[in-house]
Structure formats: C-alpha cells, structure tokens
Write a protein that binds this DNA or RNA. Sequence first.
DNA 1: GTTCTAAATGAATGACGTTCATTTACTAGA
DNA 2: TCTAGTAAATGAACGTCATTCATTTAGAAC
Lengths: 224, 224
Amino acid sequence: MNHEPASSTAAPRRRAGRPRSVVLDRELIARAALKLVAAGGYSTLTMSALAKSLSVSPSALYNHVESKQEIMQWIQEIVMDGVDSTVFETLPLDEALMAWAVTYRDIFAGHAPLIPLIAVLPVSGSPRTLEMYEKVAAGFTRAGWKQEDIIPAIVALESFIFGSALDATAPLDIFDPGENTGNIPNFEGALEAQRATGRHSADAAFHAGLRAIVNGLLATSRTT
Amino acid sequence: MNHEPASSTAAPRRRAGRPRSVVLDRELIARAALKLVAAGGYSTLTMSALAKSLSVSPSALYNHVESKQEIMQWIQEIVMDGVDSTVFETLPLDEALMAWAVTYRDIFAGHAPLIPLIAVLPVSGSPRTLEMYEKVAAGFTRAGWKQEDIIPAIVALESFIFGSALDATAPLDIFDPGENTGNIPNFEGALEAQRATGRHSADAAFHAGLRAIVNGLLATSRTT
DNA sequence: GTTCTAAATGAATGACGTTCATTTACTAGA
DNA sequence: TCTAGTAAATGAACGTCATTCATTTAGAAC
C-alpha cells in the first residue's frame, strides 16, 4: 500500500488566478477533505467548509471537481490505500484473508458514509482498488481455486466486511429491548449471556463471522 | 409476519382541523411514504412530495412526526415485516437460516437507503424487529447453541445480509476494469471466468457466501 | 355559546450543492 | 514589449431540501 500522489489526470500546472499561494489540485483537495473528515466526521464535510479550509471560495472547487461525489471517491481511494493486501504474498490463503479483512473492516468503520457509495461504484475509477483486487485474486489463484469461483468469494467477503463496518458504528446498547420486554425470552437470554462475556457484540460477531465465512469458503472450494 | 396497523402510540382521534377528509396518523403517513418510494425510489421521498400525496402542506406532517428520519424508521418497520421468520418454526436451523437470509436480502435490496440507518438504530424502537430476533434466537436455542454465541451469530449474518443487499444494487459492469487493464492478470482471468458462467456476480456471491457462513457457523458452534 | 385543543396553514429560515457571468494574472507567441 | 489566450478564482445568484413558527380553523366538552 501507500502510493505516491498518483493523480491519474495530470495535475494542473500553475497558470494563473489571484495572488494565491497555491493552486488547487486533486491531491490538495482530497487531503483537505480527509483532514476535515478526520477532525469532525462526514457531517462537517461540506463544500463551503472544504473551500474555507483551502482559503478559497466554494465555487473555485468546481474548476477541479465535477461534484461532491467525486471528492468522496477521491477520499475512498486514499482510504482504500490503507488496506493491507500484501499479506497475500506472504501468508497462506486463509490467514491472509483473515488479516486482510480485519484491516479492511477497521479502516472503513471510520468511514461508514463511504460504504453505500463504494458498493455501487465502478472499480474502473479507482486503480488502487483494482490493484487490491489483483492481489486478492492472485492469492486465490495461488491456492488453486477455480477461476470462476474467485470473484464471488471476494464479493461475498467484501459484503460481509462492509456490513460489519457499518455495524461497528452502532451504539453499544443497540440491542437493548427497552420496554418491549416480556415476549422475547430467547433473545433476552442470548443478549444477557453475550453481555456477560464482556465483549463488544460487533467485534465478537465480526470475528466469529469472519472465521465462519473463510472456513466455509475454503471448505467448499473446488480447485482446478 | 404481517401485523395489524400496530401503532404503538395510540392513533390520534379525529379532533378538528380543516374540512379535511381524513386526519393524518402514523399508519397513513408511513403507507403514503412507502407508496412514494415504490413509485419513484427514495430520491423522490421528500417531505413536500409526501405532503402533496396526502393533500396536506409539508408543515402539517410535523404534527405527527419528529423528523424525516422517523418516517424512514416507520418504513423500515413495515419493510422488516415482510421478512419471513416463521421458517425457524418449521425447518432445521441451517435451512431456516438460508431461507430467512434470502428473503431478508431480497427485500432490503429494494430499500438500500434504509440500511445505513438500520445498522445503527436501537431495536427498542421497532417491536417487529424484536419479534424477528426472538424467532431467530429461538431457532438457535432449539438447535442447542450456547446462549452467548447466538447474538454474535445473528449479527454476523445480518452484516452479511446488509452488505449483500447493498451489493445487489450495484451496476452489472461494476468490475469492468476499463482502461486500467494490463497489470491485473489474475483479476481479469477470474472476472472473465465468472462472466462466462452467465450468473449475476452479486447473486453468485450472495449464495456462495451464505452457504459458507452458515456452514462455517454451524461447524464451529459449541453447544450447551 | 364559550372554551379548549388537535390539527392544518403558509410564510420564512437556514443549510446545502451547484451554476454562471465576470475578473484576475500568468504564459506563449508575435 | 505588446497582445491574445487561458486556467483559475470570485461572488452573487439558484433551486432543493428539511424544519420552525405564529396564526387560523373547526370539532368536542362543558
């Protein structure tokens, strides 16, 4: 992971404008947006706040960006770059999948608003995401998987990861039945027993689920 | 599934107003909202469109609703009611989980914008959701599961289901690498092989993943 | 008939994201 | 050195939202 600035479209060269100290470009905007998000969450990421943080007027951003969505995509690429997919080159498939999934979920738990976007976004716009897929696919191939089973396995894992990342942002007491108690003995019993373990239910669920899905996938995999 | 009107707070009785034909109430608003969504998707669900569909001014809605979010929660309850969780009373656990998960995903694939909401919403506000959890928990209990493992298993399954529902809304060609071809032989090979099967990759992934996670959970389950 | 009150009104507000005509100031070519 | 040409920034709009609020309306209760 961790690439250079990597602007797929050549960065605009200093040309003109006002007595500006710097000229906006993709990298600058994306970094500023990420900083804003890091400081105050996604609700503080507005075009005017972003512009202000760059000492520029909101409309100036539109010389470099088509829409706010595009900025979200830039952020997504940077964030995705934090996912460690080198593990597929060093670990056996099952361990690599587990390690990869853990970092993947942890990172996107802090960027939940990106998830509905990513799930629907063509990968063609994100070279780094493609690189990640390549490394994962290589891991499956090396383990002898049938080619046609690889994409579904990756997508299934990602679905679980994204769902778990969303879940990780839920409040701790999300399952508290409140006043609606009485008719739900099995659920309440399970809830109490889970509570007694002292574990975060989201974490317990993610790890149990991850083990299950990885084992399950490997158990049913047909090799070439 | 399928309950009566079920307004937890008593419905406001006809009291006064204008020469209105009907008085707004929770059920009426929720149904109108759902109808709007069914007709034009979530982007068409605005407070003024909703008000117009009820022949009322937007501000009138706020006599019955705290916020648009609350309307979304009402919709969520109705939608959740469509998930069939009676299967746990008739089928063995593994089959019941599969059947339940399939309807769960299919239904929420048509209501993706609800997912980020649900994942974070306290269940205390939704009696029907609690009822569903009770049925699922009962299924696990009946199969002899350790109580403390039940909640994590349910949460893991739900995470996978929600992630898959989001994924189901993605465009068919989401994985098309576009111009970024060349350095990704393993991924492209896997993609081509998957394409050749003629299956929707989202569907293939969901079914493969579901089988894997259910088998994996049952394989590692410790019973009482 | 007077009072009480739930409900509806419509005008106004304040965030947003986004557009556009206009201006600014650097660069390249004559 | 002068002159276009042009990337970039400006600020004043817009349109679309959700939401608020003072005011009005008209049944119900006594």
